[in-house]
Structure formats: C-alpha cells, structure tokens
C-alpha cells in the first residue's frame, strides 16, 4: 500500500506497487525533483499494469482562504487552470521519460474538490490541451496517455474503491502521519 498526502487530503493506494510525491522540492528529502522551471504533478503511483499521475487541488477545503479561492476560480474561468494541469502532465511525462520510467500505460487523474458537473468540463478542457490535442496522428505508434479525468472526493471514491480518499480534518481521531 502507498499512502500519499497533499495538505488535507490523503489517498491510500492499497494495491500500488510503488509511489511517491513527485512535486518534491526539498533537496533533503528523497525523490527531490530539482528542476523548478518544470511543472510537476503531485504524485506518481505505479501499479502492475499502469502508472497513474495524480494532481490534487482542494478549493473545497473547509479552511480555504477567500483570496486563494478567488484566484482558483479566476484560473478556472479563464482557462489558466486547465493549461497548468496540461503543462504539469507534459513536463512530468518528459521528466519520467528522461528517467526511462514510462514503460507502462499512463493515466492522468486529478482530484479537484468541485461540484460534479464542473469536473467533466474541466477534464475535457485539459484533454484538449494535451498532445495530440484530440487530433488523429497516423504516425504515432503508441498513446501518450490512456485517460485524462477529473474527480471530486465522492466520484473518486465511487470509481476507485481500492484508492480511498480521506479528508483528514474530518477525522475525529488524529490523522495518520504523512507517508509515502
């Protein structure tokens, strides 16, 4: 099992064979990324049959600040958010390609605590900004990615029962320490 945490949200990937925080910019910690100029997804998780890139955004955090929320919604409205999500996947893919670690089908799953109807729209918007931008390319021999989708806590848990998401602040007992 791999347990990963981003602020108030924790995901237990119960059937993962490995995984770590990809967006690790502390040089003293394991898996230090080291290239600030590249966009980074939050987690990389590996399974027997696939690799999952995970990006987490939590506007639904009960402690979210008004200023941060306003900035998030502005980015959502003007398309900046989907562009950033697309860049995070592309740059993370390039980084992992350079590490020679992209040997399995890749899925890009985002956890964004928004209402369900927004998720479908946002996922389509991100997918349109990822190569090959929805266009068929006869010369390509393999898929860049298998699936790009956005979930909230409810739809994530509904679709991935082996990867439960927990909002830590909602737990009555002390939170499990951050682990990888």
């Amino acid at each position: 099992m791999t347990t990963l945490r981003e602020s108030d949200l924790q995901i237990d990937f119960t059937n993962a064979v490995g995984g770590f925080v990809f967006d690790q910019m502390k040089s003293t910690l394991p898996n230090f990324h080291g290239i600030a100029g590249m966009h980074r997804v939050d987690f990389l998780v590996e399974f027997e049959e696939a690799i999952v890139f995970v990006e987490v955004k939590d506007p639904g955090n009960p402690k979210a600040q008004a200023k941060g929320l306003a900035s998030f919604h502005a980015d959502l409205n003007d398309g900046t958010l989907s562009s950033t999500f697309a860049s995070k996947f592309i740059d993370s893919f390039v980084y992992r390609w350079a590490e020679d670690r992209v040997g399995k089908p890749i899925h890009y799953l985002s956890l964004v605590t928004l209402e369900a109807p927004f998720l479908v729209n946002l996922a389509d918007e991100i997918a349109r900004k990822l190569p090959p931008q929805g266009k068929p390319v006869a010369r390509w021999q393999r898929s860049f990615l298998e699936n790009c989708q956005v979930f909230n806590i409810e739809t994530w848990n509904d679709n991935f029962p082996k990867w439960p998401v927990t909002r830590l602040s909602s737990l009555t007992t002390p939170a499990v320490p951050t682990g990888i």
């Binding site: 059937n15 369900a116 109807p117 699936n147 679709n159």
Partner: peptide, 18 residues
C-alpha cells in the same frame, strides 16, 4: 454527470483501482 465519469473510467481504465 457522474454517470459520464463512470463510463469514461470503465471504457478507458477497466478495473484499475477497483
């Protein structure tokens, strides 16, 4: 909308995570 999400997961990810 949730049904759309489920169908995309089913068609593109099979049993991954289930």
């Amino acid at each position: 909308f949730n049904d759309l999400t489920k169908e995309q997961v089913r068609s593109k990810m099979g049993n991954l995570g289930k």
